[in-house]
């Protein structure tokens, strides 16, 4: 529904800029306050720190309940960083910028 910029996941190779591509997936539940906050917060952070270096997919779990089991979703909103490096999960509305950056391994 609010899907954006879906690019094949496997493409986690260097961009023209040389930096790693951040493959991010954000799981949200419809238009709940937490979800909308999470989207705007995350987007802001990405634009600030990862401009042109990220691939963000936003998935509405209500629309795809099966993914909830596959992706081991419990707490939402959830951001999964698939690449680079170890998979990392960030839950919450992404209002704590420091923690988001730390979680993504940017700082």
């Amino acid at each position: 529904m609010i899907k954006k910029e879906s690019v094949p996941l496997s493409d986690m190779i260097n961009d023209e800029t040389g930096g790693p591509v951040f493959v991010l997936r954000l799981f949200i539940t419809g238009a709940s306050p937490n979800s909308t906050r999470a989207i705007s917060n995350l987007k802001k952070i990405c634009e600030e720190h990862l401009k042109n270096q990220y691939d963000l997919e936003i998935i509405d779990v209500y629309q795809q309940p099966l993914t909830a089991e596959h992706e081991q979703l419990i707490a939402l909103p959830l951001l999964i960083k698939k690449a680079p490096g170890m998979e990392k999960r960030l839950i919450g509305d992404m209002s704590n910028k420091q923690k988001v950056l730390k979680g993504l391994g940017i700082e």
């Binding site: 909830a68 419990i74 707490a75 939402l76 959830l78 839950i91 919450g92 704590n96 730390k102 979680g103």
Partner: peptide
């Protein structure tokens, strides 16, 4: 260890599952 809490959340994921 895999989880970082970055703000408000709920257990909707569990509910949906």
């Amino acid at each position: 260890s895999e989880i970082e809490e970055t703000g408000e959340y709920n257990l909707d994921g569990l509910f949906i599952r």
